Structure formats: structure tokens, C-alpha cells
Amino acid sequence: MTESTDPRADLAERVAGEITLSEDPGATLRKWRTDFGVSQTDLADHLDVSSSVISDYESGRRESPGIGVVARIVNALLDIDEQRGGDRIRQYARVLSAGFESDIVSDLREYPTTFQLERFYDAIGATELTSGDHDHVTGHTVIDSIQAITRLSSEEFYRLYGQSTSRALMFTNVTRGESPLVAMRVVNPTPNAVVLHGIDREALWDHAPKMAQLDGFSLAVTDDPLDEILESLRELP
């Protein structure tokens, strides 16, 4: 997939379509508003309506918004994001340019400088369980483990590395960590670090640390809320 010439328009179309076609438009609207980090009050102010209007749409107390209202809401979210620096729009553009849908890859970024793994782990509240051959990363990719493993070919999986393999791959929707660690065995070369999100040391697959050691990458776990992790990653220089 080539890089989008208008990531804002692409993102607007995706969000509006998902809300309009959803069986629960209010819940989908709430999901996207939260994803953009926009409060009901801020969205209402931008639309020049009361907060109760947004609340009623999201809760289903008000009839589902039509296409015109959805378009206004989506454009308001994008306007607010641009006023704040456009981080969410740029994030979406990076994912698209790498050839992925945003339900597979939540974030993909290259850093302007090398980050020590310890600093990266501190930023996302991760605990290292096994050290690897490298103590630094130059980027990260946040991946839905179920979507990636069930939908991506081995060639597509390799594209998760972005511009460099010296990165951290963070897998979300993890229950024990078995599938991501097995997937790492067939990807060559391996990343510098793998982070499993949503579990702690006790819930981890028993063989995971040993497999990480065999392949030479650092293995860590974190159960911090994903939205907070993504926000912390956006704040990295």
C-alpha cells in the first residue's frame, strides 16, 4: 500500500463508516472519542452543543445520529486532534503507509534517536523478565496479537518492523503469550524486544522466557491500560 496523500480524509472516512454501520453507533462513537483523547465537554464545545447531547448519543438515549451529524462529529474530532498537534492523524498515516489496517496495528513509530530499553520500559510500565542481546530500541510497533497472527502472512508480519528491526514489538490481547512467542520463532531476524500487554509474570506461558532467550530478544510484560501506554509512547521524543 502506498502512503496516503490525505490521511485525514482516509481516517475521517474510516471513523464515519464504522460509526454509521455499527450495530451500536453510540458505543462506537464513544470508542473513537476516547481513542482521540477528547472529552465529551471538549467535543460538545467544538460543536457548539451541550455535553448532554454527546452523552445522549453515546448512551443511546438519543436516536442514532444520521450521516450528516456523524460527519460533523468526526470532523470535530479531527479538528481537535490537529489543534493539539495532529498526533492521532499522523499515527494513522504511519500505520497505513506500512500497509496495515488500524485494527491490527495501533501504533508504529521510528524514533529520532536510540532509546535505552530501560527508559522505554519505564514509559510503558513494563517489567523485563528476560534480557536480550541488545539494550536499546529505535522504534516500536503496537500490534493486536489475535488479528496479526490470524490475518498476516509471514511476509506481512515482517513489515511490522517498519524501517528497523531494532525495535520493540508490543502485542495486545494477550492471554498467556504463547502465540506471539511461537510467531517470533519463524520471523528472522527478531526484534530487540517483545512486550506482552495485559498479563503479569504469573499469567505468562511457562516457556516464554526460555524462547526469548533462545532468540536473543528482551521479553517484558505490562498490564497498564493500553490508552495510557499509547499516550506515553506518543510523548516520547
Score class of each variant (00 low, 15 high):
47 L>E: 04
224 D>L: 01
9 A>N: 08
230 L>N: 00
17 G>M: 10
91 Q>V: 04
151 R>W: 08
71 A>T: 15
54 I>T: 04
183 A>F: 09
72 R>S: 14
30 R>H: 03
223 D>G: 06
91 Q>M: 04
90 R>V: 00
184 M>A: 15
63 E>W: 02
16 A>N: 05
78 L>W: 07
136 H>T: 15
76 A>T: 13
108 L>R: 04
236 L>H: 02
237 P>Y: 01
84 R>D: 08
89 I>V: 06
91 Q>E: 01
143 I>L: 08
104 I>E: 06
92 Y>C: 02
19 I>N: 00
94 R>L: 06
167 R>V: 14
95 V>P: 00
2 T>L: 03
182 V>N: 14
132 G>V: 02
169 L>M: 13
134 H>M: 15
200 D>Q: 12
121 Y>E: 14
172 T>E: 07
118 E>W: 00
102 S>K: 02
137 V>Y: 09
225 P>R: 11
165 T>Q: 11
235 E>T: 02
46 H>Y: 08
67 I>D: 14
139 G>E: 09
124 I>C: 05
150 T>K: 07
11 L>H: 08
131 S>C: 12
209 P>N: 03
150 T>Q: 09
235 E>Y: 01
174 V>T: 14
77 L>C: 00
174 V>N: 12
68 G>A: 11
101 E>R: 10
192 N>A: 07
57 Y>Q: 08
213 Q>H: 13
222 T>H: 05
111 Y>Q: 07
115 F>T: 09
175 T>M: 14
15 V>E: 00
161 Y>D: 11
148 A>F: 04
138 T>S: 12
50 S>K: 08
52 S>A: 05
175 T>F: 11
77 L>M: 11
98 A>D: 08
128 E>A: 10
107 D>C: 04
149 I>P: 02
176 R>V: 13
106 S>A: 14
143 I>N: 11
207 H>N: 09
141 T>G: 14
192 N>F: 08
102 S>H: 02
30 R>I: 02
140 H>P: 07
112 P>S: 11
164 S>L: 04
143 I>A: 10
200 D>C: 08
135 D>Y: 06
81 D>A: 01
221 V>Y: 10
204 L>M: 15
60 G>H: 06
137 V>I: 06
121 Y>D: 15
66 G>E: 03
47 L>N: 07
196 L>P: 11
187 V>I: 15
127 T>P: 00
206 D>T: 14
185 R>I: 06
226 L>A: 01
129 L>R: 07
186 V>P: 12
135 D>S: 08
128 E>G: 06
1 M>A: 13
193 A>M: 14
172 T>G: 05
74 V>E: 02
106 S>Y: 11
